[in-house]
């Protein structure tokens, strides 16, 4: 029958066969996105990759990479950035879980609480940094309160060091992690927990055996996203951090190479290293995630 149709209407048949494979005029709708991705991501990325192999000072394609890894001042930025971003991402994910778990059902005021928790996402890094300077600074409310109740004699140093950046990453990253995890948790069919309860599981067992395993893939994804956000930390590392010491993160190194030394190839090489480290961490997390069940969780979320 199909061969008959093919011989009679060859043009029609080709179009049908293409349409069955998803090739039809609706594909054109993807065009803007493709142009966008190529123009704003693929081309700059490949350009930067190419640039990183053309060191300004010569010495072979990998000279800038060698320079980065042989200089401990540069190399240590990887460790410093990881030391900030991994704990911050972990904290954001782990702190979101109990709150999202508690808020998974419907209750009055849920929208208000969600809004309050999510507001920091709208503030932006700079405003957050200003707030942290005022609040946690040596003369800020926090230290004044601690001193007035006699808990400490000298102001606790919480800004312009590791902790300032850490707090900033938590403030901007937590709402993001929380929203994602809330939607993952809401996507788990509530009757699963009820079923577990009728089978004799107390809340601890229900969480450990049912909710957590079903949530784990979502936690991994959320960790990856918050980690990437935290790894590229830049403004707060300068504003509330110690940009020459403890919080000289890798993006600062790239910035200095590009805009203080005008060495674009070296900056590109640093950016490539940055990307590779991110991919490495994500690969490890996704490998862990693949050990879990990742199918339907039965809910409506």
């Amino acid at each position: 029958m199909s061969t008959e149709a093919a011989t009679q209407h060859p043009g029609l048949s080709v179009r049908h066969r293409l349409a069955e494979r998803g090739v039809d005029s609706q594909l054109l709708l993807l065009l803007p996105a493709v142009v966008f991705v190529i123009g704003l991501f693929v081309y700059p990325f490949l350009y930067g990759l190419g640039l990183s192999f053309q060191p300004a000072k010569g010495g072979g394609a990998f000279a800038d990479y060698q320079r980065f890894f042989s200089d401990s001042f540069q190399r240590d930025t990887i460790w410093k950035t990881l030391r900030l971003s991994v704990p911050a991402a972990l904290f954001n994910v782990l702190a979101s879980v109990p709150i999202a778990y508690r808020m998974r059902g419907k209750f009055r005021g849920k929208r208000l609480i969600t809004t309050l928790l999510v507001i920091p996402i709208t503030l932006g890094t700079v405003l957050t940094a200003e707030g942290l300077l005022n609040f946690l600074g040596p003369a800020g409310w926090f230290n004044r309160t601690l001193m007035s109740i006699g808990l400490v004699d000298h102001p606790v140093r919480l800004i312009n060091n590791y902790w300032g950046v850490f707090f900033s990453l938590v403030i901007t990253g937590f709402p993001f992690a929380f929203l994602l995890i809330l939607s993952y948790i809401s996507g788990i069919d509530p009757s699963l927990e009820r079923a577990a309860a009728t089978l004799g599981a107390d809340w601890r067992a229900r969480f450990q055996r049912i909710t957590l395993p079903l949530l784990a893939p979502g936690l991994a994804t959320t960790f990856c996203l918050t980690f990437v956000l935290a790894f590229s930390v830049f403004p707060s590392a300068i504003l509330v951090g110690d940009p020459t010491g403890a919080t000289r993160v890798i993006s600062i190194a790239a910035y200095q190479a590009a805009y203080e030394q005008y060495d674009y190839p070296f900056a590109s090489a640093i950016a490539m290293v940055m990307g590779a480290v991110e991919l490495l961490v994500i690969a490890v997390v996704l490998l862990w995630r693949s050990r879990f069940y990742v199918g339907s969780t039965g809910g409506k979320g």
Binding site: D189, S191, L192, R194, A195, L199, L214, S296, T297, G298
Partner: peptide
């Protein structure tokens, strides 16, 4: 023991 309308089997 309870049997749910949507069965509520643990999918994992």
């Amino acid at each position: 023991g309870m049997v749910f309308q949507n069965y509520a089997l643990f999918p994992h």
